[in-house]
Write a protein that binds this DNA or RNA. Structure first.
Lengths: 290, 290
DNA sequence: AGAATTGTGTTACAAAAAGAACAGAAGCCG
DNA sequence: CGGCTTCTGTTCTTTTTGTAACACAATTCT
């Protein structure tokens, strides 16, 4: 007896399309901390979602309840049922999937990776790395390998908005030596290298090192050989129940770096973002007439 | 501050001796199905416990609350906190960094995103999606936009190893219409589209849809307009303390999909991997002699 | 671009709930 | 056993809360 009565949360999601803008906004607010927010007074819920009270009343009726009180009553019933259920579905991420489902196994592993990785990071290293990456007086080179290339590109795309003088190098390409021509002492290399470590990447790192560039390395728990040359090294746990490795933790670090350097150079970022938007707009206009 | 504030349940139990008969009766009724019953109207609670309404009001004041509404508010807060803490017990992820450090703030947000996202995924949808993506009889097209392009590429790189007939399309490129020439009914499109949703992506989706292709969409919590055309839609929470959005959750899903379809087609994957290794080796040999 | 439709917030009203005051019941002392 | 204290339920008032009606805003369609 899996009692798979659709929960109110399910119902909201299913009707999401049929809802209007304000109602959707409200719906998300409800799901945000479900079910607690739905159990408060209507007005509070409305305020939290930045919609008017009647919107709440209307949506609730759209969902098939007679009124807000009835909605709350069913929410409480649901909560009661859930509390009664002795099944500890608390260690399950995707509710409704057995705990052995790949969704749950994989997520478990990734969360674990994150915890381990973050636990080993020295905040000072991190801040120092952000200082280097965000420093507009140093040219920034971002290097990725075959798979890590995606991480490199992700960082590149964002760094490009935040600051000038950013270059993205694919170590797998034959053309990378060209990029090294202009490297000066004090320039910064962000290098991604996970197993299986790539020879090209190591060569590139050596050259950069010789030229006196600072090297920040993102690697895995076993550490790329590049780490001997690196000034700062972040190693992520990347093991997951799969034939491949996970880049999720690395991405988390990259995104955090982005957030940090964006804060650090906020004035500049804002300006550059606006100019970028302008240019996009112009592109669109241009397209219109073609 | 490990916030080991005693829960209201604790408070009730501790005060149990100081309560009178009717109040104790009520207290037990509250604990019976905690916290659901306490979140309903006062009168209901009174009736369920076979006491009068003022008894409820009095007891609640004895527990130190100003009135019943305040009691309820705190109950809701407690519920909210509880829902947040299935694993996020970690006040700080990066030990040694203050909890306000961007490393901790960001990680918190991402874990939260993961939790929300996974909680809303229908495992059947997920399995269905994997079935389609892994089906070697259907051509697979992977589409990304400006930023999501990195996700698309990540999936592409792995899918390519697992199966044949995989194509990676950048919706930002002008050349995408060419790729649609050979699309047949039953082919599969995996489309990534986060805000700000891209018009090109929508157009592309429309064409694919017209041709009778199956569409699997990875989008954010507000859902790209493509979702009207999608057969299966996964929406990730992507909000983080940054001017940009987080792709970490999306990546987690993508990696899980990869793990799933790799299991599904293990024999094939193994074969292809070996052949790929061979080819890499040959490349290396070739280089050796140049 | 204008008209019709749909969605949304403000106001006003009705219902309901919580709190206060009171009166009756039960237990506890002399 | 009667008077006192403590507890409990009923009634009434005040406040809060939900809902309905309206008018304005946004959107869509023609």
């Amino acid at each position: 007896m899996p009692e798979n009565q659709p929960t109110i949360s399910d119902r909201i999601q299913r009707e999401l399309d049929r809802l209007t803008r304000a109602e959707r906004q409200l719906a998300h607010s409800i799901l945000e901390n479900y079910p607690a927010s739905g159990l408060g007074p209507l007005a509070t819920l409305a305020k939290d979602a930045n919609v008017s009270a009647p919107t709440v009343a209307r949506m609730v009726q759209k969902l098939g309840f007679k009124g807000y009180p009835e909605f709350q009553t069913e929410l409480r019933e649901e909560l009661k049922a859930k509390a009664k259920n002795p099944i500890a579905k608390h260690d399950t991420w995707a509710e409704g999937a057995p705990s052995g489902h790949v969704l749950n196994r994989f997520t478990d592993a990734v969360i674990d990776n994150i915890r381990h990785t973050l636990g080993q990071i020295d905040p000072d290293d991190f801040d120092a790395a952000c200082g280097l990456i965000g420093d507009p007086d140093r040219a920034l080179y971002i290097v990725g390998g075959r798979i890590t290339h995606t991480m490199a590109e992700y960082l590149f795309l964002h760094a490009q908005v935040i600051r000038a003088a950013v270059t993205h190098i694919q170590s797998t390409s034959n053309t990378w030596p060209h990029y090294l021509l202009d490297v000066k002492e004090g320039d910064v290399f962000v290098i991604f290298d996970n197993r299986r470590y790539e020879n090209n990447t190591l060569k590139l790192a050596e050259m950069a090192h010789t030229k006196g560039a600072k090297i920040i390395l993102f690697t895995d728990q076993w550490r790329s050989p590049v780490h001997h040359l690196a000034d700062i090294c972040f190693s992520s746990r990347i093991v997951v129940p799969s034939a491949w490795d996970s880049a999720a933790t690395t991405l988390l670090l990259v995104e955090t770096v982005i957030a940090a350097i964006q804060d650090q150079n906020w004035a500049q970022t804002k300006d550059r973002t606006e100019r970028l938007e302008d240019m996009f707009d112009q592109t669109k206009l241009f397209r219109k007439f073609t």
